[in-house]
C-alpha cells in the first residue's frame, strides 16, 4: 500500500550520530521503520540505540546490511556529497532532509544521480511516510493513518495540517511525500503523480503547492493528460507580496509566472478540485471518494 517506501524498505540514516539525525532516527524506529544502519564518518563500529550498527561509509553499510533507502541529516555544506555517496553505494532512493543546501551544489548533484538511476527526494523536505509501514524523514507518524489518499506537497507543516484534516475525517493515506521547497529538488510533482497514478492502492490524490516557479502548472497539464484518479489541490501564498521571499527559497514570486492565482487557474483547467482553505480537502474528497 505505497509508493517508494514500505515494509520492504531497509533504511540507512546518514548523519545518525548528529543532533537531528539521532532524534529522528529514534522516531523512525519507534514508528516501526526497518532501520538497518547508520553512517557517520569516523564513528564506524559503534551501535546506535543498542541495535543499529554505525558505519564510516554508505558503501560499508550497504555491503553489511543490504540497505535500499537512505535518509540524510547532515549539515548543508556536506549534503551534496552525502547524496553522491549514497548514489555511488547503489542506493536507489535517497531522501535529503537538510535545509539550506546551496543551489549551485544541486546543479551538479542532479546529473550525477540521473546517470546512476537514483530517485532523490528533497533537499529541504520533510521526507515520506507510508502509514503503518515506514517513515523516512520527519513527518509526525501520529497524525497519519493508512488509507487510499496519496498526498504530495512542497511544504512541511502545511502538509501536517492537511493530513490532520484527512485523518480526522476518516481519509487514510497511501503515502505522503514532501518534495521540498527549494528551487532545485530531485523529485517533482509529476514524478509523484506518475507513481500515485500507477499505485493500485491510491484512489485519490491531494497536491499542495506554493507560489514560485511553474511546477504546479506543469503538474496540472500532466494531470489533464495522464491522471485518471481524482486530484484536489491547494496553493499557499495567495496573499504573498510580489518579489518577496517567504521562507522557502521556492516561494518567491518573480515575473509573471508563479502567483497562486495562476496556479489555481491551471488547476481548474485541469479539472483539479480547488481547495481555497486546507480544511476544504474534506468536502472535496467526500465528493470524489464514495
Amino acid at each position: 500500500m505505497s509508493i517508494w517506501i514500505g515494509k520492504e524498505t531497509r533504511l540507512v540514516v546518514q548523519g545518525i550520530t548528529g543532533r537531528e539525525g539521532s532524534f529522528h532516527a529514534r522516531q523512525m524506529m519507534e514508528y516501526g521503520t526497518n532501520l538497518v544502519a547508520g553512517v557517520t564518518p569516523g564513528k564506524g563500529g559503534r551501535t546506535f540505540e543498542a541495535k543499529v550498527p554505525v558505519f564510516n561509509t554508505v558503501a560499508e553499510a550497504v555491503a553489511a546490511t543490504q540497505a535500499n533507502c537512505a535518509v540524510i541529516y547532515v549539515p548543508p555544506a556536506m549534503a551534496a556529497g552525502a547524496i553522491e555517496e549514497a548514489a555511488d553505494a547503489g542506493i536507489p532512493i535517497v531522501v535529503c532532509i537538510t535545509e539550506g543546501v546551496p543551489v549551485l551544489d544541486m546543479t551538479l548533484v542532479m546529473p550525477y544521480i540521473a546517470e546512476r538511476g537514483v530517485r532523490l527526494i528533497g533537499p529541504n523536505c520533510p521526507g515520506m511516510i507510508t502509514p503503518g509501514e515506514a517513515k523516512v524523514g520527519i513527518i509526525p507518524g501520529s497524525i497519519c493513518t493508512p488509507g487510499p489518499v496519496g498526498l504530495v506537497s512542497r511544504s512541511g507543516t502545511l502538509t501536517y495540517e492537511v493530513v490532520h484534516h484527512l485523518t480526522g475525517n476518516g481519509f487514510g493515506q497511501s503515502t505522503c511525500v514532501g518534495i521540498g521547497g527549494d528551487p532545485i529538488v530531485g523529485t517533482n510533482f509529476i514524478d509523484v503523480l506518475t507513481a500515485f497514478n500507477a499505485d493500485p492502492k491510491t484512489e485519490a490524490i491531494v497536491m499542495i503547492g506554493e507560489i514560485g516557479g511553474t511546477a504546479e502548472q506543469e503538474a496540472a497539464e500532466y494531470i489533464k493528460k495522464h491522471v485518471a484518479k481524482p486530484v484536489v489541490g491547494f496553493v499557499a501564498g495567495q496573499t504573498a507580496p510580489k518579489g518577496r521571499r517567504m521562507g522557502h527559497a521556492g516561494a518567491i514570486i518573480s515575473g509573471s509566472a508563479g502567483t497562486a492565482e495562476e496556479k489555481f487557474v491551471a488547476f481548474e483547467a485541469a479539472g483539479i478540485g480547488i481547495m481555497r482553505r486546507p480544511v476544504d480537502v474534506v468536502e472535496l474528497l467526500k465528493s470524489v471518494l464514495k
Binding site: S153, G156, L158, I211, Q238, A240, H248, R276, R277
Partner: peptide
C-alpha cells in the same frame, strides 16, 4: 511554524476578511 503553513495562515486571514500584518 513553517513557511508553507505561514503563507496558508496569511491566506486564511484574507479569506475571513482580514489583512495579515506580517509573514
Amino acid at each position: 511554524n513553517g513557511a508553507g503553513l505561514a503563507m496558508a495562515t496569511m491566506d486564511l486571514v484574507k479569506y475571513y476578511g482580514g489583512e495579515p500584518a506580517n509573514f
